[in-house]
């Protein structure tokens, strides 16, 4: 077995909904080997996004520990988590979440503003990332001038530009047609296989899940493994 990138141990997550407490994740254990490509499926509201948020250091568990690489996320402060996220994890969302006032190039450069790279170096790295996702010729375009698939590619470039080990994708093809979705999924596969990115992808779509190495089913706060074909 290859080494482990992320480990969740006894993780529970409870939300306060009005006066009620809702336990979204219950005593969850999960190991993610480096270089893995995992798809997480499950009904709406089953806690998939919550799980990604915990893995990405956007949220903290109510109990249990989340370890990614050398970092013990559950014990870090908010600003420590911010710094950690800037180099260790890339996020890809269903609705791309690009900044409309910035060009594709500047959107991709955004995470690099937090580094010590010079403006020239930032531009160079952003260009390379755009090349990788096949949008080298769209650098000067604004998000509104791009198709949904292209916007998602820019978002992927932004996620990988600071070269994080882990990519977290929350329904990355949920807003795309079949053909475009397949292109995005192939791109993720390339990032996984050729660039060594560890990917955790939440999806509703069984066909999308097939691109992963393994599929986990999330239901009522627990995960159930099911090997991919």
């Amino acid at each position: 077995m290859s080494e482990t990138l992320a480990t969740l141990t006894g993780v529970s997550k409870t939300y306060q909904k009005g006066k009620e407490k809702v336990e979204v994740l219950h005593n969850l254990d999960l190991q993610i080997p480096a270089g893995d490509f995992i798809a997480i499926m499950g009904p709406s509201g089953s806690g998939k996004t919550t799980l990604l948020n915990l893995l990405g250091g956007l949220d903290k568990p109510s109990s249990g520990t989340v370890r990614v690489g050398d970092a013990e996320l559950s014990s870090m402060s908010n600003s420590q988590l911010s710094h950690w996220r800037s180099t260790n994890v890339g996020f890809i969302f269903q609705f791309y979440n690009l900044l409309p006032v910035l060009t594709a190039q500047k959107n991709v450069e955004l995470p690099l503003l937090l580094t010590d790279f010079s403006g020239k170096e930032r531009a160079k790295r952003a260009s390379i990332a755009l090349e990788i996702v096949g949008l080298g010729d769209r650098a000067k375009h604004y998000p509104r001038e791009l198709s949904g698939g292209q916007e998602q590619r820019v978002a992927i470039a932004r996620a990988v530009v600071s070269d994080p080990a882990l990519l977290l994708c929350d329904e990355p093809t949920g807003d795309l047609d079949r053909e475009t979705a397949d292109e995005i999924l192939k791109l993720l596969q390339i990032l996984n296989r050729e660039h060594g990115k560890t990917i955790v992808m939440v999806t509703h779509d069984a066909q999308a899940a097939e691109y992963a190495n393994r599929i986990l089913h999330c239901d009522k706060g627990t995960l159930e493994a099911r090997e991919a074909v």
Partner: peptide
Amino acid sequence: ISELAVLKTVGFTDR
């Protein structure tokens, strides 16, 4: 709001 959340997601601190 969502753009500001994206800034924070990619690592911009609250400050």
